[in-house]
Design a protein around this nucleic acid. Structure first.
Length: 356
DNA sequence: AAGACGGGGTC
DNA sequence: GACCCAGTCTT
């Protein structure tokens, strides 16, 4: 038996039961594929259910505000996925009367739908004969056929695409693509692959050479850029017991666009706590001078680091003049209202830890 | 072609 | 705490 036949046989017994596989609705498949870009199944499943409940149809999604959409996406990361999905839903409704695209070529025209997602949707929803190459597929092919091409080069991608096209059994693209992905995440896993119980193992070139962990090949990784975020929670109580504080909406470029966070000073280098409060450019935070007299002793909480983002968090009680000055630059909110705003996971953790 | 974009996982 | 994962858009 050839590779595709063994794989499909495995899939019939071991394929995962997923909500969007049952329904077969293009809208649900589209939504699931966008959520699962760069995201693990276990993490994305709840988001899929809640998102579909909030926006059951493409019309409902198009009619929602961006803030509502982002709030459903909160905590998932890569928020441009949500913004593109929203934009594309509006495009489908306004330009196509709510009728979803019927071919991969049409899907490709939508924002947030690239070559992988277009092929995945078209093969699953319409059984179009097209391979969908995601990270799982690259890994499986690289191992089974001991492919030396790097998966992060244009030439390498073309090579994998050609190989997958040749392997694809005509008329069974939907099952084949899903089988590849399930097999890649359940058996041919990135670390600790289950070679001992793998049905493909007899024909796996990497296994034969005892080189499973050398595939897929990649070019060298680059150094991540460090960004240091110094957040300020300027707060007061009014009336007593009801905490109020300032937030801002990030509406420019860069990370977390259109999401809410706290007044912030960013630096490309690490700054000590003392330096933040003595030498930093406070005008950037306050928009005014003459605020220093209002500053209270700082209760420094915790430090949280991300792979690239390093964030520190300073609660500062403010009153009177400083509050009026800050009002000109930031929006006021309360604990309860803040809960309803779209915000990053990072900030969510800051706030909940501070006021838990 | 290279970099930006998040969050969670492992060891 | 360092490293891994890997679709799409932007530059």
């Amino acid at each position: 038996m050839d590779f595709a036949a063994v794989l499909l046989e495995w899939y019939e017994k071991n394929g995962r039961e997923l909500p969007w596989r049952k329904s077969g609705h293009p809208y649900e498949i589209w939504l699931s594929e966008v959520i699962l870009q760069q995201t693990r199944m276990e993490q994305g499943l709840d988001y899929f259910e809640r998102f579909l409940e909030a926006f059951p149809t493409v019309e409902a999604l198009a009619a929602a505000s961006q803030e509502q959409v982002l709030r459903q996406w909160q905590g998932l990361g890569y928020y441009s996925r949500a913004r593109n999905l929203h934009k594309s839903a509006q495009q489908v409704v306004s330009e196509r009367g709510g009728r979803l695209p019927g071919s991969s070529k049409e899907w490709l025209r939508l924002k947030g739908v690239g070559s992988y997602t277009a092929a995945a949707i078209a093969s699953m929803a319409f059984n179009e004969d097209l391979p969908a190459l995601d990270g799982n597929v690259y890994r499986v092919l690289a191992r089974v056929f001991a492919i030396e091409h790097s998966i992060d080069s244009a030439a390498g991608k073309r090579h994998f695409e050609e190989l997958a096209t040749n392997l694809l059994p005509r008329g069974r693209a939907g099952a084949f693509n899903q089988a590849m992905m399930d097999f890649g995440s359940l058996v041919c896993r990135p670390v600790h692959p289950l070679c001992v119980q793998c049905m493909i193992q007899p024909m796996c070139e990497a296994f034969a050479r005892d080189r499973v962990h050398d595939y897929p090949r990649r070019k060298g990784k680059k150094q991540p850029v460090d960004r240091y975020f110094y957040y300020f929670l300027f707060y007061w109580e009014e009336p007593p017991g009801a905490k109020q504080f300032f937030v801002q909406e990030r509406d420019k470029k860069g990370i977390w666009q259109h999401m809410f966070d706290l007044p912030l000073m960013e630096s490309s280098v690490k700054i000590s706590d003392e330096t933040v409060f003595t030498h930093a450019d406070w005008r950037f935070v306050f928009g005014l001078e003459g605020w220093r007299q209002e500053q209270q002793p700082v209760d420094l909480k915790h430090l949280l680091t991300h792979r690239r983002i390093h964030a520190r968090f300073y609660p500062v009680r403010v009153s009177g003049q400083a509050r009026r000055a800050l009002h000109q630059r930031y929006q006021q909110t309360s604990r309860e209202d803040f809960h309803e705003l779209p915000k990053s996971r990072l900030l969510e953790r800051f706030i909940s830890r501070l006021w838990s």
